[in-house]
Design a binder for these strands. Sequence first.
DNA 1: GCAGTTGATGACAACGATGACATGACTCGA
DNA 2: TCGAGTCATGTCATCGTTGTCATCAACTGC
Lengths: 347, 347
Amino acid sequence: MTSSKGATLRDVAAHAGVSIKTASRVLNDDPRVATDTRAAVTASMVTLSYQPDPAARSLRAGRDRTVGVVVESIGDVFVAGLVAQIERVLAEVGYQVLVASSYRERDRERAIVSNFVQRRCAGLIVMPSSHDALQGLPLRDLPVVFVDREGDAPSSQSVVVNDHKLAKEATSHLIAQGHRRIALMSDVLVVDTTRHRHEGYLEALRDAGITPDDRLIRAECIDEPRVFAVLDELLALDAPPTAIFSANTRVSLGIVPALHVAGRTDVAMVAFGDFPMAASLKPAITVIDHSPARIGEVAARTLMARLIESSDQRQGGPVITVPAHLIERGSGEIPAEPPRRKSRNRR
Amino acid sequence: MTSSKGATLRDVAAHAGVSIKTASRVLNDDPRVATDTRAAVTASMVTLSYQPDPAARSLRAGRDRTVGVVVESIGDVFVAGLVAQIERVLAEVGYQVLVASSYRERDRERAIVSNFVQRRCAGLIVMPSSHDALQGLPLRDLPVVFVDREGDAPSSQSVVVNDHKLAKEATSHLIAQGHRRIALMSDVLVVDTTRHRHEGYLEALRDAGITPDDRLIRAECIDEPRVFAVLDELLALDAPPTAIFSANTRVSLGIVPALHVAGRTDVAMVAFGDFPMAASLKPAITVIDHSPARIGEVAARTLMARLIESSDQRQGGPVITVPAHLIERGSGEIPAEPPRRKSRNRR
DNA sequence: GCAGTTGATGACAACGATGACATGACTCGA
DNA sequence: TCGAGTCATGTCATCGTTGTCATCAACTGC
């Protein structure tokens, strides 16, 4: 039945016997409309199953009920969880989500943002490839919320976890099990987040009076093959590490299979970021619960507050820190010196 | 420097000393423009760093370089992989991706589609909650590609795997290991895909002369707690299953931890759909490699073919089947009768 | 009973781009 | 040499909506 093109505001106005402007007013909840007129127009809208045209609206009004989300790669598990939550929260208030992946390429990222601005998105949620990723881009006062990493932009806010503190906590946890040779495996150091985790790691070592060993610090784990290679090298050292701190989920997803393949699940490990199956592996993986859902939710609500109330008043400071904590599951509690066959099962 | 509002086509035209229409022609690669005029306009565009306004464009031209993607839930690993590939392919040709999750609610799904149509998306990629999910919706001849499940819509195509065949293959694989009591765990039977997998399972049993046991067929595994409960019940049966066929990834992600917690990793298992870590578990999980990337890629290219060439000529039939195969990893090769301590390590 | 206020409504232009059609300068073949 | 056909370009209206300003009736208070 419902065929071809939908009804326009003009049709609604004609059907209700009012001017198009009055219909527009009803549509926009303008108080200056008589009650019965409003009723008539509303009825006509229902009858004609009218739906406003977003393009015309955004062209004229200069804004669109759309939020642009720029992430590193939507295929990443962490990112998917993040976007899911953002989409869920924004859908509640009738906003649509545009997603695009930057693949960490600065130019691509900037092009995406420009495009979103051009599209009159109402706001932006960005997982920036670098602190100054958006520097100098014309943002038209768009509210911007950075996620997972801090970013610079006029009137922006960032939703992050305390990378430094949590990385330190993870490392200290391993130290507490008696480990002194702890490897750090991470992605390259272009993202601030990763840098902060490195610093946390180093500080934990320093506090424990352990001299960092450059051979154990490997910030080159960009893909799975690379992780395998690095791990091979680490295990082949004269003094190999007895524990590993994995600085992000993608790396963890490489380390775990690699350890299993090498048959070296005796090496302790703490992973920054939870992941599917982490609790079911043998040993189960001790993680820093860096929850994408929590971060996404906070980011979306932070943006929403600025979208809806049109209050430039931003809630919370420029940097909002979401809590996270360490979940002991086994891999992080493997002691440095394997117990000398005291008892196989203590319990 | 670059401030506030961007340049409009009028500005470009003025700067190049031509009419706005000529500038428009250059923008749209209309051949009817003199070479030097074109050069001048292009130069002006660069100088003013002109970017076309998508809203105005889509309003006038009736189409937008945007593809609407409707999925069940963007947070799902399978879905995330799918969307990532779609986005990647479409970005190559300058299309933006709008995503929305239906959470399998029909009304929501239909509302999303209507909205996308209203937005003048150039095309739609839909993971439909049911075969007739889009029935009767005004689609304006939009090219629609259904993914992972077949769907009905005028001039649509579907990109799927052969669920029936693959489920049968998985089940037969378990039968070949000597199993006769094979449980089937799946999501509820609202989606065709799931139904086809059930049929494949049943056919494999029938072919092997095994009578299906209703107590082993559990199509109620909608979330993780439910999976745990069902598994408990199954294992508590008088004649418990010796093998499990998991009909989708979400269910697998529940079964694996449940088996580990119950200490019953001696139960054989084949999972429909690969997932992170599947190869690193003990035992590693034998899966049907139902690859989201492959499906996403094919779906995106199928849609692209119709977007770009504006040829209504659709390539491929209404249903495009993407190949998939069984990957033996261990869990699916656990024999029905555990070997009677012949030798611990054969090699 | 009248200026001034308020409230409801409408006419019109504009947002930025493109489609239909028109124009004027060529070229070409008979 | 001229009409037809091509080519490059321009004029104008239009997509569906909203902002600005005008209109006009009813109501206020003195």
